[in-house]
Simulated scan of single mutants.
Amino acid sequence: MQTLDIMLPHYGDTALMQAAVTSVLDQTDKDWRLTVVDDGREEGVPEWFAALGDSRVRYQRNEQNLGITRNFRKCVELVESTHFTMLGSDDLLLPTYVETIRAAVEAEPDAAIYQPGVEVIDEHGNASTTLGDEVKRRLYAPKNDGRRLVLSGEPLAANLLGGNWLYFPSICWRTDAVRAVNFREDLSVIQDLALIIELVRRGEKLVVDPAPAFRYRRHSGSLSSAEAVTGARFGEAVRFFHEIADELDRHGWPKAARSARRHLSMRLHALTMLPGALRQRRSKTIRTLLGYALSTSQR
Protein backbone atom coordinates (compact mmCIF):
# COMPACT_ATOMS: atom_id res chain seq x y z
CA MET A 1 0.00 0.00 0.00
CA GLN A 2 1.21 3.49 -0.82
CA THR A 3 0.98 6.42 1.57
CA LEU A 4 -2.48 6.32 3.15
CA ASP A 5 -4.56 9.35 2.19
CA ILE A 6 -6.68 10.51 5.12
CA MET A 7 -9.41 12.82 3.87
CA LEU A 8 -11.20 15.00 6.41
CA PRO A 9 -14.33 16.79 5.12
CA HIS A 10 -14.92 19.32 7.87
CA TYR A 11 -17.96 21.26 9.00
CA GLY A 12 -18.82 21.98 12.61
CA ASP A 13 -17.02 22.05 15.94
CA THR A 14 -13.46 23.38 15.61
CA ALA A 15 -12.16 21.82 18.83
CA LEU A 16 -13.36 18.34 17.85
CA MET A 17 -11.81 18.76 14.39
CA GLN A 18 -8.49 19.76 15.96
CA ALA A 19 -8.63 16.66 18.16
CA ALA A 20 -9.22 14.52 15.06
CA VAL A 21 -6.20 16.09 13.35
CA THR A 22 -4.06 15.54 16.45
CA SER A 23 -5.03 11.85 16.42
CA VAL A 24 -3.63 11.64 12.88
CA LEU A 25 -0.38 13.35 13.92
CA ASP A 26 0.00 10.77 16.71
CA GLN A 27 0.09 7.73 14.41
CA THR A 28 2.78 5.10 15.02
CA ASP A 29 3.06 4.60 11.25
CA LYS A 30 4.07 8.00 9.88
CA ASP A 31 3.41 7.20 6.21
CA TRP A 32 0.16 9.12 5.78
CA ARG A 33 -1.10 12.31 4.13
CA LEU A 34 -3.96 14.33 5.64
CA THR A 35 -6.16 16.54 3.45
CA VAL A 36 -8.73 18.74 5.20
CA VAL A 37 -11.51 20.19 3.06
CA ASP A 38 -13.24 22.83 5.16
CA ASP A 39 -16.88 23.47 4.25
CA GLY A 40 -17.35 26.03 7.03
CA ARG A 41 -16.36 29.59 7.88
CA GLU A 42 -15.06 29.36 11.45
CA GLU A 43 -12.45 31.99 12.30
CA GLY A 44 -8.88 30.95 13.03
CA VAL A 45 -9.03 27.55 11.36
CA PRO A 46 -6.73 28.32 8.38
CA GLU A 47 -4.24 29.93 10.75
CA TRP A 48 -4.27 26.90 13.05
CA PHE A 49 -3.36 24.60 10.17
CA ALA A 50 -0.66 26.96 8.92
CA ALA A 51 0.93 26.88 12.38
CA LEU A 52 1.20 23.07 12.35
CA GLY A 53 4.14 23.28 9.96
CA ASP A 54 3.71 19.65 8.79
CA SER A 55 4.09 19.05 5.05
CA ARG A 56 1.91 15.93 5.32
CA VAL A 57 -1.08 18.08 6.30
CA ARG A 58 -2.92 19.94 3.55
CA TYR A 59 -5.77 22.36 4.20
CA GLN A 60 -8.22 24.07 1.88
CA ARG A 61 -11.47 25.95 2.47
CA ASN A 62 -14.34 25.74 -0.01
CA GLU A 63 -15.28 29.06 -1.58
CA GLN A 64 -18.94 28.10 -1.22
CA ASN A 65 -20.62 25.63 1.11
CA LEU A 66 -20.94 22.34 -0.78
CA GLY A 67 -22.95 20.31 1.72
CA ILE A 68 -21.97 16.94 3.10
CA THR A 69 -22.23 14.70 0.03
CA ARG A 70 -20.69 17.10 -2.46
CA ASN A 71 -17.82 17.65 -0.04
CA PHE A 72 -17.37 13.86 0.17
CA ARG A 73 -17.20 13.74 -3.62
CA LYS A 74 -14.62 16.54 -3.67
CA CYS A 75 -12.50 14.62 -1.18
CA VAL A 76 -12.59 11.56 -3.42
CA GLU A 77 -11.39 13.70 -6.33
CA LEU A 78 -8.42 14.92 -4.26
CA VAL A 79 -7.19 11.45 -3.25
CA GLU A 80 -3.75 10.69 -4.70
CA SER A 81 -2.98 7.27 -3.24
CA THR A 82 -4.33 3.77 -3.88
CA HIS A 83 -6.23 3.78 -0.57
CA PHE A 84 -7.92 6.41 1.55
CA THR A 85 -9.97 6.96 4.70
CA MET A 86 -12.80 9.53 5.01
CA LEU A 87 -12.27 10.56 8.63
CA GLY A 88 -15.14 12.27 10.42
CA SER A 89 -14.14 15.63 11.87
CA ASP A 90 -15.49 14.64 15.29
CA ASP A 91 -13.97 11.15 15.37
CA LEU A 92 -10.52 9.95 16.45
CA LEU A 93 -7.92 7.56 15.13
CA LEU A 94 -6.24 5.37 17.70
CA PRO A 95 -2.43 5.59 17.33
CA THR A 96 -2.25 2.24 15.52
CA TYR A 97 -4.90 3.03 12.88
CA VAL A 98 -2.54 3.44 9.89
CA GLU A 99 -0.45 0.48 11.06
CA THR A 100 -3.57 -1.72 11.34
CA ILE A 101 -4.93 -0.68 7.96
CA ARG A 102 -1.59 -1.21 6.23
CA ALA A 103 -1.38 -4.75 7.58
CA ALA A 104 -4.94 -5.52 6.45
CA VAL A 105 -4.34 -4.17 2.94
CA GLU A 106 -1.10 -6.11 2.60
CA ALA A 107 -2.85 -9.30 3.72
CA GLU A 108 -5.90 -8.82 1.43
CA PRO A 109 -4.84 -6.42 -1.36
CA ASP A 110 -7.80 -7.20 -3.65
CA ALA A 111 -10.49 -5.97 -1.26
CA ALA A 112 -12.15 -2.56 -1.63
CA ILE A 113 -13.42 -1.98 1.93
CA TYR A 114 -11.46 -2.41 5.18
CA GLN A 115 -13.26 -2.15 8.51
CA PRO A 116 -11.03 -2.01 11.61
CA GLY A 117 -12.14 -2.47 15.20
CA VAL A 118 -14.07 0.50 16.60
CA GLU A 119 -14.56 1.92 20.08
CA VAL A 120 -17.63 4.14 20.59
CA ILE A 121 -17.29 7.34 22.62
CA ASP A 122 -19.72 10.06 23.67
CA GLU A 123 -19.60 13.83 23.18
CA HIS A 124 -17.00 14.15 25.93
CA GLY A 125 -14.69 11.40 24.70
CA ASN A 126 -15.79 8.82 27.26
CA ALA A 127 -16.51 5.21 26.37
CA SER A 128 -20.16 4.85 25.46
CA THR A 129 -22.61 2.00 24.98
CA THR A 130 -25.77 2.79 23.04
CA LEU A 131 -28.67 0.52 22.17
CA GLY A 132 -27.96 0.94 18.48
CA ASP A 133 -24.30 -0.04 18.84
CA GLU A 134 -25.18 -3.06 20.97
CA VAL A 135 -27.69 -4.20 18.34
CA LYS A 136 -25.02 -3.78 15.67
CA ARG A 137 -22.53 -5.84 17.61
CA ARG A 138 -24.82 -8.58 18.87
CA LEU A 139 -27.29 -9.09 16.00
CA TYR A 140 -25.69 -7.96 12.77
CA ALA A 141 -21.89 -7.88 12.95
CA PRO A 142 -20.24 -11.20 12.02
CA LYS A 143 -18.80 -13.24 14.85
CA ASN A 144 -15.13 -14.11 14.74
CA ASP A 145 -12.34 -15.41 16.96
CA GLY A 146 -10.07 -12.42 16.56
CA ARG A 147 -8.92 -13.17 13.03
CA ARG A 148 -9.54 -11.07 9.92
CA LEU A 149 -12.67 -11.92 7.95
CA VAL A 150 -13.17 -11.52 4.21
CA LEU A 151 -16.84 -11.10 3.23
CA SER A 152 -18.51 -10.66 -0.15
CA GLY A 153 -21.46 -11.38 -2.40
CA GLU A 154 -25.18 -11.67 -1.73
CA PRO A 155 -24.80 -12.88 1.89
CA LEU A 156 -22.89 -9.70 2.74
CA ALA A 157 -25.39 -7.46 0.92
CA ALA A 158 -28.33 -9.12 2.68
CA ASN A 159 -26.59 -8.80 6.04
CA LEU A 160 -25.83 -5.08 5.63
CA LEU A 161 -29.28 -4.25 4.29
CA GLY A 162 -30.79 -5.98 7.32
CA GLY A 163 -28.59 -3.96 9.66
CA ASN A 164 -25.59 -1.84 8.71
CA TRP A 165 -22.99 -2.65 11.37
CA LEU A 166 -20.12 -0.82 9.65
CA TYR A 167 -18.70 2.51 10.89
CA PHE A 168 -18.30 4.65 7.80
CA PRO A 169 -15.64 7.17 9.03
CA SER A 170 -13.38 4.32 10.18
CA ILE A 171 -13.35 2.50 6.83
CA CYS A 172 -10.36 2.42 4.50
CA TRP A 173 -11.32 2.35 0.81
CA ARG A 174 -9.55 1.28 -2.36
CA THR A 175 -9.56 4.45 -4.41
CA ASP A 176 -10.22 3.08 -7.90
CA ALA A 177 -13.23 1.09 -6.69
CA VAL A 178 -14.83 4.11 -5.04
CA ARG A 179 -14.20 6.39 -8.01
CA ALA A 180 -16.00 3.93 -10.25
CA VAL A 181 -19.15 4.42 -8.14
CA ASN A 182 -18.75 7.49 -5.88
CA PHE A 183 -21.25 8.95 -3.42
CA ARG A 184 -24.76 9.64 -4.70
CA GLU A 185 -25.60 13.34 -4.64
CA ASP A 186 -29.30 12.63 -3.99
CA LEU A 187 -28.55 11.06 -0.59
CA SER A 188 -27.42 12.87 2.56
CA VAL A 189 -27.42 10.36 5.45
CA ILE A 190 -27.41 6.90 3.88
CA GLN A 191 -24.94 7.55 1.05
CA ASP A 192 -22.29 5.37 2.72
CA LEU A 193 -24.52 2.27 2.66
CA ALA A 194 -25.52 2.98 -0.94
CA LEU A 195 -21.86 3.10 -1.96
CA ILE A 196 -21.01 -0.09 -0.07
CA ILE A 197 -23.92 -2.08 -1.50
CA GLU A 198 -23.02 -1.04 -5.03
CA LEU A 199 -19.39 -2.07 -4.47
CA VAL A 200 -20.52 -5.44 -3.13
CA ARG A 201 -22.91 -5.86 -6.08
CA ARG A 202 -19.94 -5.29 -8.39
CA GLY A 203 -18.03 -8.13 -6.74
CA GLU A 204 -15.82 -6.19 -4.32
CA LYS A 205 -14.80 -7.67 -0.96
CA LEU A 206 -14.95 -6.38 2.61
CA VAL A 207 -12.17 -7.13 5.10
CA VAL A 208 -13.00 -6.98 8.81
CA ASP A 209 -10.00 -6.59 11.11
CA PRO A 210 -11.09 -6.78 14.77
CA ALA A 211 -8.02 -4.94 16.10
CA PRO A 212 -9.29 -1.71 17.76
CA ALA A 213 -7.99 1.23 15.74
CA PHE A 214 -10.72 3.90 15.73
CA ARG A 215 -12.89 5.89 18.14
CA TYR A 216 -16.35 6.74 16.76
CA ARG A 217 -18.17 9.61 18.43
CA ARG A 218 -21.90 9.42 19.13
CA HIS A 219 -23.54 12.72 19.98
CA SER A 220 -26.80 14.54 19.40
CA GLY A 221 -25.23 17.24 17.21
CA SER A 222 -24.60 15.02 14.20
CA LEU A 223 -26.55 15.45 10.96
CA SER A 224 -27.87 11.89 11.08
CA SER A 225 -29.09 12.33 14.68
CA ALA A 226 -30.82 15.61 13.86
CA GLU A 227 -32.55 14.14 10.83
CA ALA A 228 -33.55 11.04 12.76
CA VAL A 229 -35.31 13.16 15.41
CA THR A 230 -37.46 14.82 12.75
CA GLY A 231 -37.99 11.61 10.79
CA ALA A 232 -36.27 13.00 7.67
CA ARG A 233 -33.59 10.30 7.77
CA PHE A 234 -36.15 7.54 7.39
CA GLY A 235 -37.83 8.97 4.32
CA GLU A 236 -34.51 8.91 2.49
CA ALA A 237 -33.75 5.44 3.80
CA VAL A 238 -37.08 3.92 2.73
CA ARG A 239 -36.68 5.37 -0.75
CA PHE A 240 -33.22 3.86 -1.01
CA PHE A 241 -34.25 0.44 0.33
CA HIS A 242 -37.09 0.00 -2.15
CA GLU A 243 -34.96 1.23 -5.01
CA ILE A 244 -32.05 -1.09 -4.23
CA ALA A 245 -34.44 -4.01 -3.68
CA ASP A 246 -35.67 -3.68 -7.25
CA GLU A 247 -32.08 -3.45 -8.52
CA LEU A 248 -31.00 -6.53 -6.57
CA ASP A 249 -33.96 -8.52 -7.89
CA ARG A 250 -32.81 -7.70 -11.41
CA HIS A 251 -29.26 -8.63 -10.39
CA GLY A 252 -30.42 -12.09 -9.30
CA TRP A 253 -29.95 -11.57 -5.55
CA PRO A 254 -33.48 -12.25 -4.16
CA LYS A 255 -32.32 -12.78 -0.54
CA ALA A 256 -30.64 -9.37 -0.47
CA ALA A 257 -33.68 -7.80 -2.14
CA ARG A 258 -35.99 -9.24 0.56
CA SER A 259 -33.68 -7.92 3.26
CA ALA A 260 -33.83 -4.44 1.70
CA ARG A 261 -37.64 -4.46 1.54
CA ARG A 262 -37.91 -5.52 5.17
CA HIS A 263 -35.27 -2.95 6.33
CA LEU A 264 -35.84 -4.29 9.83
CA SER A 265 -33.08 -2.39 11.63
CA MET A 266 -34.26 0.92 10.17
CA ARG A 267 -37.78 0.28 11.44
CA LEU A 268 -36.41 -0.62 14.88
CA HIS A 269 -34.36 2.59 14.81
CA ALA A 270 -37.52 4.58 14.11
CA LEU A 271 -39.13 2.98 17.17
CA THR A 272 -36.18 3.98 19.37
CA MET A 273 -36.67 7.62 18.30
CA LEU A 274 -40.29 7.70 19.46
CA PRO A 275 -39.63 8.46 23.16
CA GLY A 276 -37.75 11.63 22.21
CA ALA A 277 -40.52 12.75 19.88
CA LEU A 278 -43.10 12.03 22.58
CA ARG A 279 -41.17 14.04 25.17
CA GLN A 280 -40.98 16.99 22.77
CA ARG A 281 -44.66 16.55 21.83
CA ARG A 282 -43.91 16.51 18.11
CA SER A 283 -47.18 15.03 16.89
CA LYS A 284 -46.23 15.12 13.20
CA THR A 285 -42.88 13.46 13.89
CA ILE A 286 -44.59 10.79 16.03
CA ARG A 287 -46.93 9.90 13.18
CA THR A 288 -44.04 9.84 10.72
CA LEU A 289 -41.88 7.60 12.90
CA LEU A 290 -44.75 5.20 13.57
CA GLY A 291 -45.44 5.01 9.85
CA TYR A 292 -41.86 4.04 9.09
CA ALA A 293 -41.61 1.66 12.03
CA LEU A 294 -44.81 -0.30 11.34
CA SER A 295 -44.91 -0.40 7.56
CA THR A 296 -42.58 -1.62 4.81
CA SER A 297 -44.84 -0.53 1.95
CA GLN A 298 -43.91 3.19 1.79
CA ARG A 299 -42.20 4.41 -1.36
Rank of each mutant, 00 (worst) to 15 (best):
P46V: 10
S81T: 14
A237N: 05
S265C: 11
E99C: 11
V178A: 08
E77N: 03
P212R: 15
R282H: 05
Q115D: 07
A104L: 04
Y59N: 07
V105Y: 02
H251I: 06
T288Y: 03
R70S: 06
K255F: 00
L52N: 10
E198H: 05
T285G: 02
K143S: 09
H251N: 13
P116D: 13
P142T: 13
R281M: 13
V207S: 04
V189N: 02
M7E: 13
L294R: 08
H10Q: 05
T28E: 04
T14G: 10
A20E: 04
L16W: 06
W165L: 02
T35W: 02
A104Y: 02
A20V: 01
D176N: 11
L66G: 04
E80P: 00
P116H: 09
E99P: 01
V178K: 01
G53A: 15
E236G: 08
R61W: 09
S295I: 12
T96H: 14
F234K: 02
T130V: 03
E185F: 14
G44A: 11
L206P: 02
L78W: 06
S81N: 09
E198I: 00
L264T: 11
G231A: 07
K143Y: 05
A141L: 00
F241N: 05
E63Y: 10
D38S: 05
Y292V: 01
A180K: 11
T35C: 01
G162P: 00
L199N: 09
R174E: 04
V105A: 05
A107H: 09
V189Y: 03
P46Y: 00
M86Y: 08
K30G: 12
Y114Q: 06
H263A: 14
E236D: 12
L139Q: 15
A257V: 08
G88H: 10
A15N: 10
D29R: 06
L289I: 08
W253G: 00
D145I: 15
A158K: 09
Q2K: 08
T130Q: 07
P95D: 09
R299I: 15
N164A: 08
R299N: 13
F84N: 02
I196E: 14
V181F: 02
R279H: 11
H263W: 13
F183D: 01
T22A: 15
N164E: 11
V189P: 03
C75R: 04
L161T: 01
E63C: 11
S295D: 05
A270K: 01
P254L: 10
G132V: 10
E154T: 02
L166P: 04
R258M: 12
L93G: 03
E106C: 14
L131C: 08
R258V: 10
L223K: 13
H251D: 15
V118M: 11
G153Y: 03
V150A: 12
W165P: 00
P9V: 04
